[in-house]
Design a protein around this nucleic acid. Sequence first.
DNA 1: GTCTATAGGTGGATAGAC
DNA 2: GTCTATCCACCTATAGAC
Lengths: 192, 192
Amino acid sequence: MAPHLKANTADRILDVAERLVQTKGFNGFSYADISAELGVQKASLHHHFQTKAILGTTVISRHRTRFLGALAEIDAAGSDAPTKLNAYTKLYADVLRKRRMCLCGMLAADFETLPKPMRDGVVEFFAANEVWLAGVLESGRKKKTLRFAGTAAATAAFLLSSLEGAMLVARSFGGVAKFESVVRKVLTELMD
Amino acid sequence: MAPHLKANTADRILDVAERLVQTKGFNGFSYADISAELGVQKASLHHHFQTKAILGTTVISRHRTRFLGALAEIDAAGSDAPTKLNAYTKLYADVLRKRRMCLCGMLAADFETLPKPMRDGVVEFFAANEVWLAGVLESGRKKKTLRFAGTAAATAAFLLSSLEGAMLVARSFGGVAKFESVVRKVLTELMD
DNA sequence: GTCTATAGGTGGATAGAC
DNA sequence: GTCTATCCACCTATAGAC
Protein backbone atom coordinates (compact mmCIF):
# COMPACT_ATOMS: atom_id res chain seq x y z
CA MET A 1 0.00 0.00 0.00
CA ALA A 2 2.50 2.64 1.16
CA PRO A 3 4.37 3.56 -2.03
CA HIS A 4 8.12 3.68 -1.48
CA LEU A 5 9.90 5.82 -4.01
CA LYS A 6 12.85 3.44 -3.92
CA ALA A 7 12.53 -0.27 -3.33
CA ASN A 8 15.13 -1.82 -1.08
CA THR A 9 18.09 -3.63 -2.58
CA ALA A 10 16.71 -7.12 -2.12
CA ASP A 11 13.53 -6.21 -3.99
CA ARG A 12 15.43 -4.50 -6.77
CA ILE A 13 17.56 -7.62 -7.16
CA LEU A 14 14.42 -9.74 -7.32
CA ASP A 15 12.90 -7.41 -9.92
CA VAL A 16 15.88 -7.78 -12.24
CA ALA A 17 16.25 -11.51 -11.61
CA GLU A 18 12.57 -12.07 -12.31
CA ARG A 19 12.76 -10.24 -15.61
CA LEU A 20 15.92 -12.09 -16.62
CA VAL A 21 14.34 -15.46 -15.86
CA GLN A 22 11.27 -14.52 -17.87
CA THR A 23 13.28 -13.35 -20.87
CA LYS A 24 16.44 -15.51 -20.89
CA GLY A 25 15.64 -18.48 -18.69
CA PHE A 26 17.29 -19.51 -15.43
CA ASN A 27 20.47 -20.65 -17.18
CA GLY A 28 20.58 -17.60 -19.45
CA PHE A 29 21.72 -14.98 -16.95
CA SER A 30 24.28 -14.57 -14.16
CA TYR A 31 24.94 -12.52 -11.06
CA ALA A 32 27.19 -10.41 -13.26
CA ASP A 33 24.17 -9.34 -15.36
CA ILE A 34 22.27 -8.20 -12.28
CA SER A 35 25.40 -6.53 -10.92
CA ALA A 36 25.91 -4.51 -14.10
CA GLU A 37 22.29 -3.45 -14.30
CA LEU A 38 21.96 -2.32 -10.68
CA GLY A 39 25.48 -0.97 -10.26
CA VAL A 40 25.95 -3.26 -7.27
CA GLN A 41 28.88 -5.62 -6.87
CA LYS A 42 28.36 -9.36 -7.25
CA ALA A 43 29.47 -9.94 -3.66
CA SER A 44 26.65 -7.67 -2.48
CA LEU A 45 24.13 -9.75 -4.38
CA HIS A 46 25.41 -12.83 -2.59
CA HIS A 47 24.91 -11.01 0.71
CA HIS A 48 21.16 -10.80 -0.06
CA PHE A 49 20.80 -14.13 -1.85
CA GLN A 50 23.62 -16.45 -0.94
CA THR A 51 23.17 -18.82 -3.87
CA LYS A 52 21.48 -18.64 -7.23
CA ALA A 53 19.15 -21.43 -6.13
CA ILE A 54 17.98 -19.29 -3.21
CA LEU A 55 17.54 -16.31 -5.50
CA GLY A 56 15.49 -18.41 -7.89
CA THR A 57 13.34 -19.88 -5.16
CA THR A 58 12.67 -16.41 -3.76
CA VAL A 59 11.71 -15.07 -7.19
CA ILE A 60 9.20 -17.89 -7.54
CA SER A 61 7.65 -17.48 -4.12
CA ARG A 62 7.30 -13.70 -4.46
CA HIS A 63 5.75 -14.20 -7.87
CA ARG A 64 3.30 -16.79 -6.58
CA THR A 65 2.22 -14.48 -3.77
CA ARG A 66 1.62 -11.62 -6.20
CA PHE A 67 -0.12 -13.80 -8.75
CA LEU A 68 -2.46 -15.35 -6.23
CA GLY A 69 -3.11 -11.79 -5.03
CA ALA A 70 -4.15 -10.85 -8.55
CA LEU A 71 -6.51 -13.84 -8.67
CA ALA A 72 -7.98 -12.78 -5.31
CA GLU A 73 -8.61 -9.32 -6.75
CA ILE A 74 -10.41 -10.86 -9.70
CA ASP A 75 -12.53 -12.85 -7.28
CA ALA A 76 -13.17 -9.76 -5.14
CA ALA A 77 -14.64 -7.90 -8.11
CA GLY A 78 -17.52 -10.34 -7.96
CA SER A 79 -17.90 -10.65 -11.73
CA ASP A 80 -19.35 -13.60 -13.58
CA ALA A 81 -17.21 -16.50 -14.76
CA PRO A 82 -16.65 -15.31 -18.35
CA THR A 83 -15.44 -11.93 -17.08
CA LYS A 84 -13.09 -13.67 -14.66
CA LEU A 85 -11.62 -15.77 -17.44
CA ASN A 86 -11.12 -12.67 -19.56
CA ALA A 87 -9.33 -10.99 -16.68
CA TYR A 88 -7.18 -14.08 -16.22
CA THR A 89 -6.06 -14.11 -19.84
CA LYS A 90 -5.33 -10.38 -19.58
CA LEU A 91 -2.75 -11.15 -16.88
CA TYR A 92 -0.90 -13.27 -19.43
CA ALA A 93 -1.26 -10.73 -22.23
CA ASP A 94 0.23 -8.02 -20.02
CA VAL A 95 3.31 -10.16 -19.39
CA LEU A 96 3.71 -10.91 -23.10
CA ARG A 97 3.39 -7.21 -23.91
CA LYS A 98 6.54 -6.70 -21.84
CA ARG A 99 8.16 -9.29 -24.13
CA ARG A 100 8.37 -11.74 -21.25
CA MET A 101 7.34 -15.36 -20.87
CA CYS A 102 5.24 -16.54 -17.95
CA LEU A 103 7.77 -17.04 -15.13
CA CYS A 104 6.78 -20.62 -14.41
CA GLY A 105 6.28 -21.43 -18.08
CA MET A 106 9.89 -20.45 -18.66
CA LEU A 107 11.01 -22.43 -15.63
CA ALA A 108 9.00 -25.41 -16.88
CA ALA A 109 11.29 -25.40 -19.91
CA ASP A 110 14.36 -25.25 -17.64
CA PHE A 111 12.77 -27.78 -15.28
CA GLU A 112 15.29 -30.60 -15.58
CA THR A 113 18.18 -28.28 -14.67
CA LEU A 114 16.50 -26.65 -11.66
CA PRO A 115 17.28 -27.32 -7.99
CA LYS A 116 14.53 -29.22 -6.21
CA PRO A 117 13.03 -26.27 -4.31
CA MET A 118 12.53 -24.38 -7.56
CA ARG A 119 10.92 -27.39 -9.20
CA ASP A 120 8.50 -27.63 -6.32
CA GLY A 121 7.64 -23.95 -6.70
CA VAL A 122 6.86 -24.36 -10.40
CA VAL A 123 4.60 -27.34 -9.79
CA GLU A 124 2.77 -25.54 -6.98
CA PHE A 125 2.19 -22.56 -9.23
CA PHE A 126 0.64 -24.68 -11.97
CA ALA A 127 -1.47 -26.57 -9.44
CA ALA A 128 -2.78 -23.36 -7.87
CA ASN A 129 -3.66 -21.98 -11.29
CA GLU A 130 -5.59 -25.06 -12.28
CA VAL A 131 -7.45 -25.12 -8.98
CA TRP A 132 -8.52 -21.50 -9.41
CA LEU A 133 -9.50 -22.03 -13.04
CA ALA A 134 -11.47 -25.16 -12.23
CA GLY A 135 -13.41 -23.23 -9.58
CA VAL A 136 -14.30 -20.49 -12.04
CA LEU A 137 -15.27 -23.04 -14.69
CA GLU A 138 -17.45 -25.03 -12.32
CA SER A 139 -19.28 -21.95 -11.11
CA GLY A 140 -19.76 -20.76 -14.69
CA ARG A 141 -21.23 -24.07 -15.70
CA LYS A 142 -23.65 -24.00 -12.75
CA LYS A 143 -24.88 -20.54 -13.72
CA LYS A 144 -24.92 -21.48 -17.41
CA THR A 145 -22.56 -18.68 -18.34
CA LEU A 146 -19.98 -21.24 -19.51
CA ARG A 147 -20.32 -24.44 -21.50
CA PHE A 148 -17.77 -27.23 -21.73
CA ALA A 149 -17.62 -31.02 -21.96
CA GLY A 150 -15.81 -33.17 -19.43
CA THR A 151 -14.57 -32.18 -16.02
CA ALA A 152 -13.75 -28.66 -14.89
CA ALA A 153 -10.28 -29.89 -13.92
CA ALA A 154 -9.53 -31.19 -17.42
CA THR A 155 -10.84 -27.98 -18.95
CA ALA A 156 -8.69 -25.95 -16.56
CA ALA A 157 -5.63 -27.94 -17.63
CA PHE A 158 -6.51 -27.30 -21.26
CA LEU A 159 -6.87 -23.56 -20.60
CA LEU A 160 -3.55 -23.30 -18.76
CA SER A 161 -1.71 -25.32 -21.39
CA SER A 162 -3.11 -23.30 -24.24
CA LEU A 163 -2.24 -19.98 -22.64
CA GLU A 164 1.30 -21.10 -21.81
CA GLY A 165 1.80 -22.44 -25.31
CA ALA A 166 0.34 -19.35 -26.94
CA MET A 167 2.77 -17.20 -24.96
CA LEU A 168 5.71 -19.47 -25.72
CA VAL A 169 5.10 -19.50 -29.45
CA ALA A 170 3.92 -15.90 -29.83
CA ARG A 171 7.04 -14.49 -28.18
CA SER A 172 9.09 -15.64 -31.18
CA PHE A 173 6.41 -16.06 -33.84
CA GLY A 174 3.45 -13.77 -34.21
CA GLY A 175 3.61 -11.54 -31.17
CA VAL A 176 0.73 -10.20 -29.08
CA ALA A 177 -1.70 -10.21 -31.99
CA LYS A 178 -1.34 -13.95 -32.51
CA PHE A 179 -1.54 -14.59 -28.76
CA GLU A 180 -4.82 -12.73 -28.58
CA SER A 181 -6.16 -14.53 -31.59
CA VAL A 182 -5.49 -17.88 -29.92
CA VAL A 183 -7.00 -16.68 -26.65
CA ARG A 184 -10.18 -15.59 -28.42
CA LYS A 185 -10.44 -19.03 -29.99
CA VAL A 186 -9.99 -20.76 -26.66
CA LEU A 187 -12.48 -18.60 -24.79
CA THR A 188 -15.06 -18.65 -27.57
CA GLU A 189 -15.34 -22.41 -27.24
CA LEU A 190 -16.38 -21.92 -23.62
CA MET A 191 -18.62 -18.90 -23.98
CA ASP A 192 -20.39 -19.04 -27.34
CA MET B 1 17.48 -46.45 -45.95
CA ALA B 2 20.68 -48.50 -45.57
CA PRO B 3 20.86 -49.21 -41.83
CA HIS B 4 24.33 -48.48 -40.48
CA LEU B 5 25.00 -50.29 -37.26
CA LYS B 6 27.05 -47.34 -36.07
CA ALA B 7 26.26 -43.76 -36.98
CA ASN B 8 29.21 -41.55 -37.82
CA THR B 9 30.62 -39.23 -35.20
CA ALA B 10 28.92 -36.09 -36.46
CA ASP B 11 25.52 -37.76 -36.28
CA ARG B 12 26.17 -39.17 -32.83
CA ILE B 13 27.12 -35.68 -31.66
CA LEU B 14 23.92 -34.31 -33.16
CA ASP B 15 21.88 -37.04 -31.46
CA VAL B 16 23.22 -36.16 -28.03
CA ALA B 17 23.04 -32.42 -28.62
CA GLU B 18 19.45 -32.70 -29.80
CA ARG B 19 18.43 -34.63 -26.72
CA LEU B 20 20.24 -32.19 -24.42
CA VAL B 21 18.54 -29.20 -26.03
CA GLN B 22 15.17 -30.89 -25.69
CA THR B 23 15.69 -31.76 -22.03
CA LYS B 24 17.91 -28.99 -20.63
CA GLY B 25 17.64 -26.13 -23.10
CA PHE B 26 20.38 -24.60 -25.25
CA ASN B 27 22.00 -22.88 -22.24
CA GLY B 28 21.67 -25.95 -20.03
CA PHE B 29 24.40 -28.12 -21.52
CA SER B 30 27.99 -27.82 -22.73
CA TYR B 31 30.48 -29.50 -25.01
CA ALA B 32 31.79 -31.20 -21.88
CA ASP B 33 28.45 -32.99 -21.42
CA ILE B 34 28.55 -34.36 -24.96
CA SER B 35 32.22 -35.25 -24.55
CA ALA B 36 31.55 -37.26 -21.39
CA GLU B 37 28.61 -39.09 -22.90
CA LEU B 38 30.30 -40.07 -26.15
CA GLY B 39 33.79 -40.60 -24.74
CA VAL B 40 35.11 -38.12 -27.27
CA GLN B 41 37.31 -35.17 -26.38
CA LYS B 42 35.88 -31.64 -26.54
CA ALA B 43 38.42 -30.67 -29.19
CA SER B 44 37.07 -33.42 -31.42
CA LEU B 45 33.57 -32.05 -31.08
CA HIS B 46 34.86 -28.67 -32.20
CA HIS B 47 36.39 -30.37 -35.24
CA HIS B 48 32.89 -31.44 -36.35
CA PHE B 49 31.02 -28.35 -35.14
CA GLN B 50 33.38 -25.45 -34.74
CA THR B 51 31.07 -23.38 -32.52
CA LYS B 52 28.05 -24.09 -30.37
CA ALA B 53 26.00 -21.82 -32.61
CA ILE B 54 26.85 -24.00 -35.62
CA LEU B 55 26.03 -27.13 -33.64
CA GLY B 56 22.67 -25.64 -32.63
CA THR B 57 21.85 -24.53 -36.15
CA THR B 58 22.68 -27.98 -37.50
CA VAL B 59 20.52 -29.67 -34.88
CA ILE B 60 17.61 -27.49 -35.92
CA SER B 61 18.01 -28.03 -39.64
CA ARG B 62 18.36 -31.81 -39.30
CA HIS B 63 15.29 -31.84 -37.07
CA ARG B 64 13.27 -29.77 -39.53
CA THR B 65 14.18 -32.12 -42.37
CA ARG B 66 13.13 -35.15 -40.36
CA PHE B 67 9.96 -33.53 -39.07
CA LEU B 68 8.83 -32.39 -42.51
CA GLY B 69 9.60 -35.92 -43.65
CA ALA B 70 7.24 -37.27 -41.02
CA LEU B 71 4.54 -34.87 -42.20
CA ALA B 72 5.11 -36.01 -45.77
CA GLU B 73 4.63 -39.61 -44.63
CA ILE B 74 1.36 -38.66 -42.99
CA ASP B 75 0.26 -37.04 -46.24
CA ALA B 76 1.41 -40.06 -48.24
CA ALA B 77 -0.87 -42.36 -46.24
CA GLY B 78 -3.79 -40.59 -47.90
CA SER B 79 -5.96 -40.58 -44.78
CA ASP B 80 -8.73 -38.11 -44.02
CA ALA B 81 -8.08 -34.89 -42.11
CA PRO B 82 -9.05 -36.14 -38.62
CA THR B 83 -6.68 -39.10 -38.97
CA LYS B 84 -3.90 -36.77 -40.08
CA LEU B 85 -4.42 -34.55 -37.05
CA ASN B 86 -4.34 -37.58 -34.78
CA ALA B 87 -1.08 -38.69 -36.36
CA TYR B 88 0.31 -35.18 -35.92
CA THR B 89 -0.45 -35.12 -32.20
CA LYS B 90 1.08 -38.57 -31.90
CA LEU B 91 4.41 -37.11 -33.08
CA TYR B 92 4.31 -34.82 -30.07
CA ALA B 93 3.21 -37.51 -27.63
CA ASP B 94 6.11 -39.72 -28.72
CA VAL B 95 8.57 -36.93 -27.92
CA LEU B 96 6.99 -36.33 -24.53
CA ARG B 97 7.13 -40.04 -23.75
CA LYS B 98 10.90 -39.75 -24.04
CA ARG B 99 10.64 -37.00 -21.41
CA ARG B 100 11.67 -34.43 -23.96
CA MET B 101 10.21 -31.09 -24.98
CA CYS B 102 9.55 -30.22 -28.62
CA LEU B 103 12.94 -29.03 -29.90
CA CYS B 104 11.68 -25.72 -31.21
CA GLY B 105 9.33 -25.22 -28.27
CA MET B 106 12.35 -25.44 -25.99
CA LEU B 107 14.32 -23.11 -28.22
CA ALA B 108 11.38 -20.70 -28.25
CA ALA B 109 11.89 -20.38 -24.50
CA ASP B 110 15.61 -19.74 -25.02
CA PHE B 111 14.84 -17.49 -27.98
CA GLU B 112 16.24 -14.22 -26.67
CA THR B 113 19.62 -15.81 -25.95
CA LEU B 114 19.98 -17.59 -29.32
CA PRO B 115 22.24 -16.57 -32.21
CA LYS B 116 20.34 -15.23 -35.19
CA PRO B 117 20.60 -18.33 -37.42
CA MET B 118 19.03 -20.45 -34.69
CA ARG B 119 16.23 -17.94 -34.18
CA ASP B 120 15.49 -18.07 -37.88
CA GLY B 121 15.36 -21.86 -37.75
CA VAL B 122 12.85 -21.83 -34.91
CA VAL B 123 10.58 -19.37 -36.68
CA GLU B 124 10.75 -21.36 -39.92
CA PHE B 125 9.82 -24.53 -38.06
CA PHE B 126 6.74 -22.94 -36.52
CA ALA B 127 5.74 -21.41 -39.83
CA ALA B 128 6.05 -24.72 -41.66
CA ASN B 129 3.97 -26.46 -39.00
CA GLU B 130 1.19 -23.92 -39.23
CA VAL B 131 1.16 -24.08 -43.02
CA TRP B 132 0.83 -27.85 -42.94
CA LEU B 133 -1.86 -27.75 -40.25
CA ALA B 134 -3.82 -25.07 -42.08
CA GLY B 135 -3.80 -27.22 -45.21
CA VAL B 136 -5.15 -30.22 -43.33
CA LEU B 137 -7.78 -28.09 -41.61
CA GLU B 138 -8.93 -26.49 -44.84
CA SER B 139 -9.26 -29.82 -46.59
CA GLY B 140 -11.13 -31.27 -43.61
CA ARG B 141 -13.56 -28.41 -43.62
CA LYS B 142 -14.19 -28.83 -47.35
CA LYS B 143 -14.98 -32.51 -46.90
CA LYS B 144 -16.99 -31.80 -43.74
CA THR B 145 -14.81 -34.09 -41.63
CA LEU B 146 -13.71 -31.10 -39.52
CA ARG B 147 -15.63 -28.15 -38.13
CA PHE B 148 -14.15 -24.91 -36.85
CA ALA B 149 -14.94 -21.20 -36.79
CA GLY B 150 -12.65 -18.55 -38.27
CA THR B 151 -9.75 -19.08 -40.63
CA ALA B 152 -7.77 -22.29 -41.03
CA ALA B 153 -4.61 -20.28 -40.28
CA ALA B 154 -5.91 -19.05 -36.93
CA THR B 155 -7.08 -22.54 -36.04
CA ALA B 156 -3.68 -23.95 -37.00
CA ALA B 157 -2.00 -21.40 -34.70
CA PHE B 158 -4.33 -22.43 -31.91
CA LEU B 159 -3.53 -26.09 -32.44
CA LEU B 160 0.22 -25.55 -32.47
CA SER B 161 0.12 -23.32 -29.39
CA SER B 162 -2.01 -25.76 -27.44
CA LEU B 163 0.21 -28.71 -28.25
CA GLU B 164 3.39 -26.82 -27.36
CA GLY B 165 1.86 -25.60 -24.11
CA ALA B 166 0.48 -29.00 -23.22
CA MET B 167 3.96 -30.48 -23.68
CA LEU B 168 5.63 -27.69 -21.74
CA VAL B 169 3.34 -27.99 -18.75
CA ALA B 170 2.92 -31.77 -18.77
CA ARG B 171 6.66 -32.39 -18.66
CA SER B 172 6.74 -31.00 -15.12
CA PHE B 173 3.10 -31.30 -14.09
CA GLY B 174 0.89 -34.19 -15.04
CA GLY B 175 2.94 -36.18 -17.53
CA VAL B 176 1.77 -37.97 -20.65
CA ALA B 177 -1.71 -38.63 -19.26
CA LYS B 178 -2.44 -34.93 -18.84
CA PHE B 179 -0.95 -34.17 -22.25
CA GLU B 180 -3.27 -36.67 -23.88
CA SER B 181 -6.25 -35.35 -21.97
CA VAL B 182 -5.58 -31.85 -23.30
CA VAL B 183 -5.06 -33.18 -26.83
CA ARG B 184 -8.38 -35.01 -26.74
CA LYS B 185 -10.09 -31.80 -25.66
CA VAL B 186 -8.47 -29.83 -28.47
CA LEU B 187 -9.27 -32.37 -31.17
CA THR B 188 -12.80 -33.02 -29.96
CA GLU B 189 -13.66 -29.37 -30.59
CA LEU B 190 -12.73 -29.88 -34.23
CA MET B 191 -14.18 -33.33 -34.81
CA ASP B 192 -17.30 -33.73 -32.72
C1' DG C 1 25.32 -3.58 3.66
C1' DT C 2 28.71 -2.66 0.28
C1' DC C 3 33.13 -2.97 -1.28
C1' DT C 4 37.87 -5.23 -3.25
C1' DA C 5 40.04 -9.28 -4.08
C1' DT C 6 40.23 -13.86 -5.07
C1' DA C 7 39.38 -18.71 -5.03
C1' DG C 8 38.19 -22.79 -7.68
C1' DG C 9 35.73 -24.38 -11.36
C1' DT C 10 33.66 -24.52 -16.01
C1' DG C 11 32.45 -22.21 -20.38
C1' DG C 12 33.63 -22.13 -25.54
C1' DA C 13 37.35 -22.34 -28.41
C1' DT C 14 42.29 -23.05 -30.52
C1' DA C 15 47.20 -24.99 -31.52
C1' DG C 16 49.65 -28.56 -32.88
C1' DA C 17 51.23 -33.58 -32.39
C1' DC C 18 49.89 -38.08 -33.98
C1' DG D 1 39.73 -37.35 -37.19
C1' DT D 2 41.19 -37.72 -32.54
C1' DC D 3 44.13 -36.60 -29.09
C1' DT D 4 46.80 -33.54 -25.22
C1' DA D 5 47.51 -29.24 -23.71
C1' DT D 6 46.27 -24.74 -23.13
C1' DC D 7 43.99 -19.99 -23.36
C1' DC D 8 41.07 -16.74 -21.45
C1' DA D 9 36.63 -15.16 -20.26
C1' DC D 10 33.13 -16.05 -17.25
C1' DC D 11 30.76 -18.65 -13.60
C1' DT D 12 29.18 -19.17 -8.55
C1' DA D 13 30.74 -18.31 -4.26
C1' DT D 14 33.69 -16.74 -0.17
C1' DA D 15 37.01 -13.87 2.85
C1' DG D 16 37.71 -9.94 4.98
C1' DA D 17 38.27 -4.65 5.03
C1' DC D 18 35.43 -0.56 5.53
